[in-house]
């Protein structure tokens, strides 16, 4: 599996192209903006965009869909049925789909927005605005924030701690790093076992 990351200068969002090593069908996650560089990534690697996955419907993550529909014929997957006027394949619950020959686990995590989804492809998690390096997504109020932190702990921090996290904005990270160093999730969230493991690991080396 190959993951290509593209930084959209409009909306400052990370867009990801995920496909196989040989080219062919590929998945595009959160097309915030389509420019020559993104098209060049797709075409140089002989990819055809067969699916677009939207983590949520905010403009900075979806504005490029229109341009892509003029070039390719992808199926668009999102939680909500309304993203501009595009035909959407709705995903309502945690489920598994196959896109571009890759298994995609879909996790619904409301909080940043009611339609927020996280995609797990292999050992990579595409978290959109739900979980970023050392921060969680912004929320409209305290209730939503509390809900978001609770659901992140329940659904994401229980996953394999070596999973790579590719967020919608900012640097990549790993689940382990977020458990230990995300100030919004730390303190009570890190399991004593994991903290001990890290301590031991560091103690042995230094």
């Amino acid at each position: 599996m190959r993951i290509y990351q593209h930084f959209s200068v409009v909306g400052f969002c990370n867009t990801y192209v995920v496909g196989s090593k040989k080219g062919g069908e590929a998945i595009l996650i959160d097309p915030g903006h389509v420019d020559n560089e993104l098209i060049s990534i797709i075409e140089r690697n002989n990819y055809t965009i067969s699916s677009i996955l939207l983590t949520h419907r905010h403009q900075s993550h979806t504005k490029g869909v229109g341009t892509l529909l003029k070039l390719y014929k992808p199926t668009i997957y999102a939680y909500t049925s309304k993203v501009y006027d595009f035909e959407i394949t709705e995903i309502k619950n945690d489920t598994k789909i196959v896109c571009g020959g890759l298994d995609v686990d879909i996790i619904h995590l409301p909080g940043h927005s009611v339609d927020s989804l996280v995609f797990k492809i292999g050992h990579a998690l595409f978290t959109g605005d739900t979980l970023m390096a050392s921060r969680v997504g912004s929320t409209p109020g305290f209730v939503e924030r509390s809900l978001l932190i609770k659901i992140i702990k329940k659904k994401l921090l229980n996953l394999d701690d070596n999973l790579l996290v590719f967020p919608g904005h900012g640097a990549p990270t790993k689940i382990k790093n977020e458990i230990l160093f995300n100030p919004e999730l730390t303190e009570e969230s890190a399991s004593p076992w994991l903290r001990n493991q890290i301590k031991l690991e560091r103690h042995n080396r230094f």
Binding site: R2, I3, Y4, Q5, H6, K21, E37, S40, I41, H123
Partner: peptide, 10 residues
């Protein structure tokens, strides 16, 4: 930066 990003073996 746009063309040399793949990913290591998972």
């Amino acid at each position: 930066f746009d063309n040399h990003k793949n990913m290591f073996n998972f």
